[in-house]
Simulated scan of single mutants.
Amino acid sequence: MSLDLFRGALLPLVWAILWLIGMGLVWLVRGSKGIAALPLIWFFLGVISDFRILFLDPIELIIDDIDLGFWYYFGAVITFVEIIVCYGICAAAMLTRDDI
């Protein structure tokens, strides 16, 4: 129970920090495609890594322990879609925002 409270309090803070990091990247790039190349490659490698972790090499003990493989993959699909949307928003902002 205390772990859930800790994660519930920590997760919004982590998302806020990640948002600030993303907006910092947008500020650094300012629409320059040359400067955006490295973060875009980093995002692409992150998507590949997240896909591998979520779908190709999931932690079998978790799936076997809760015996709910369907719910694991349901949550993994939602998480992966959220990852792609967040990376896409940040990448689009990096390439189009030059007024920051």
Rank of each mutant, 00 (worst) to 15 (best):
M1P: 08
M1I: 10
M1A: 13
S2L: 15
S2A: 15
S2F: 14
L3G: 06
L3P: 04
D4R: 12
L5T: 14
F6E: 13
F6S: 10
F6A: 15
R7C: 13
G8P: 00
G8M: 04
A9W: 12
A9V: 09
L10C: 07
L11H: 10
L13D: 05
V14D: 06
V14T: 10
A16T: 08
A16L: 13
A16R: 06
I17Q: 07
I17A: 15
I17R: 06
L18D: 11
L18F: 10
L18Y: 09
W19H: 12
I21V: 14
I21Q: 05
G22N: 04
M23L: 13
M23E: 11
M23K: 06
L25S: 03
L25Q: 07
V26C: 03
V26L: 02
V26T: 03
W27K: 12
W27V: 11
W27A: 14
L28M: 12
V29E: 03
V29T: 04
V29A: 01
R30A: 13
G31D: 05
S32P: 07
K33F: 13
I35G: 01
A36D: 06
P39E: 05
P39F: 02
P39A: 04
L40E: 07
L40T: 09
I41S: 08
W42H: 11
W42I: 09
F43K: 00
L45S: 06
L45F: 09
G46Y: 03
V47I: 14
I48Y: 09
I48E: 08
I48S: 09
I48C: 13
S49E: 14
D50V: 10
F51N: 01
F51I: 02
F51L: 05
R52F: 12
R52D: 13
R52K: 13
I53S: 12
I53E: 13
I53V: 13
L54N: 02
F55P: 06
F55I: 07
L56M: 08
P58W: 01
P58I: 00
I59D: 15
I59V: 14
E60G: 08
L61M: 14
I62N: 14
I62L: 13
I63P: 01
D64G: 09
D65S: 15
D65N: 15
I66E: 15
D67P: 04
D67W: 08
L68P: 02
L68I: 07
G69I: 06
F70K: 05
F70V: 11
F70G: 07
W71R: 14
W71Q: 15
W71A: 15
Y72R: 01
Y72Q: 03
F74L: 12
G75E: 07
A76Y: 02
A76F: 02
A76C: 02
A76P: 00
A76I: 02
V77I: 11
V77N: 05
V77D: 03
I78R: 10
I78C: 09
T79A: 12
T79S: 10
F80I: 04
V81P: 00
V81I: 11
V81K: 00
E82C: 11
E82V: 08
E82H: 10
I83E: 01
I84W: 05
C86M: 15
G88T: 04
I89C: 07
C90P: 00
C90T: 14
A91W: 00
A91S: 04
A92N: 08
A92Y: 13
A92F: 12
A93V: 00
A93D: 07
A93P: 01
M94T: 02
L95D: 03
L95C: 05
L95N: 03
L95P: 03
T96N: 11
T96P: 02
D98R: 12
D99A: 06
